[in-house]
């Protein structure tokens, strides 16, 4: 019995080391590249490390190296696009999520279908055709065009998260408020909205993250004029590994932090999102 337990422990430890190596390997490769100043192959580690590339990328030191650009403008642009995307998406998804949760809707099947389709089918052809439509109406390569593409990604998830949130609030609470004379809107504003606040906040954070990391839509409808952080990462990736790595880390940190915060509130299938 004792030996069996030892063997079991040994197997578990091997599994743990294996998982850690697989998880940490690629992440540490990114971190090492971001601080590598001199790295001659085939050395396992850089000869010189330092924060030179970080300082350049963050605009604290200017540089003439190939591909050296400050990522600050792209970062600010990404944040601005994400904030506007969140505001517009929430303004659209809160009423829709509430309606889906609280009313029996004729043709409800059609509405559900419309919001489920983007999860079931590849989205790339959508962005390709948005580019075609945008080109005709002058939205191609503009910030509003990119925001609309990001809203598409945000709204699909936002509707599900908000409607699940409103569903979890018992209707009896709003009914109680109405029975003492509150109007429907007051009952919503004073009862449902505060109770739903944590779920709505999670939805907002999720849409923010999705917009920050969105690649495919921006690639088609935004390039070459709208350089968000993921676009900067992509263009740096071709010729300057250090800048690409710095950008990737800047992009990764908020995603990981926020997702850890909100993952408990989200249903498993939404957490993965779309590539």
């Amino acid at each position: 019995m004792h030996r069996k337990r030892l063997i079991r422990l040994a197997i578990e430890l091997v599994l743990l080391v294996l998982v850690l190596l697989i998880l940490i390997g690629p992440v540490s490769s990114l971190v090492i590249w971001s601080i590598a100043e001199t790295w001659y192959w085939p050395n396992a580690f850089p000869q010189e490390v330092g924060l030179q590339y970080w300082l350049q990328a963050l605009g604290l030191r200017t540089s003439l190296a190939i591909g050296a650009v400050s990522i600050v403008p792209a970062f600010l642009l990404s944040i601005m696009i994400a904030v506007i995307t969140v505001v517009f998406s929430m303004a659209i998804t809160i009423p829709a999520g509430y309606a889906l949760a609280k009313y029996h809707i004729p043709l409800g099947g059609f509405v559900l279908f419309l919001f489920l389709m983007p999860n079931a089918f590849p989205q790339m052809p959508i962005f390709v055709n948005l580019l075609r439509i945008y080109t005709d109406i002058g939205l191609a390569g503009t910030i509003p065009g990119v925001i609309i593409a990001h809203m598409l990604v945000g709204i699909v998830f936002g509707v599900w998260i908000t409607s699940a949130t409103f569903k979890s609030i018992p209707p009896s609470l709003e009914e109680a408020a109405r029975s003492v004379g509150a109007t429907k809107f007051t009952a919503f504003r004073r009862i449902s909205l505060p109770l739903a606040a944590p779920g709505l906040l999670a939805s907002a954070v999720f849409i923010f993250i999705k917009s920050l990391e969105e690649f495919t839509g921006t690639f088609f409808v935004g390039l070459p004029f709208v350089q968000t952080l993921p676009m900067t990462l992509y263009s740096a990736s071709g010729y300057n590994m250090q800048f690409a790595s710095v950008t990737a880390i800047v992009l990764m940190v908020p995603s990981v932090l926020f997702m850890i915060l909100i993952q408990k509130v989200l249903r498993a299938e939404y957490v993965g999102g779309m590539g």
Partner: peptide, 26 residues
């Protein structure tokens, strides 16, 4: 800890793999 990969954006994963799996990569 297994959840780490879920939270990292695809574009960052792509960059990671580009450096980690490169012929001279880690």
């Amino acid at each position: 800890i297994y959840k780490l990969g879920i939270f990292i954006p695809f574009v960052v994963v792509a960059q990671m793999m580009r450096s980690f799996l490169a012929p001279h990569g880690m």
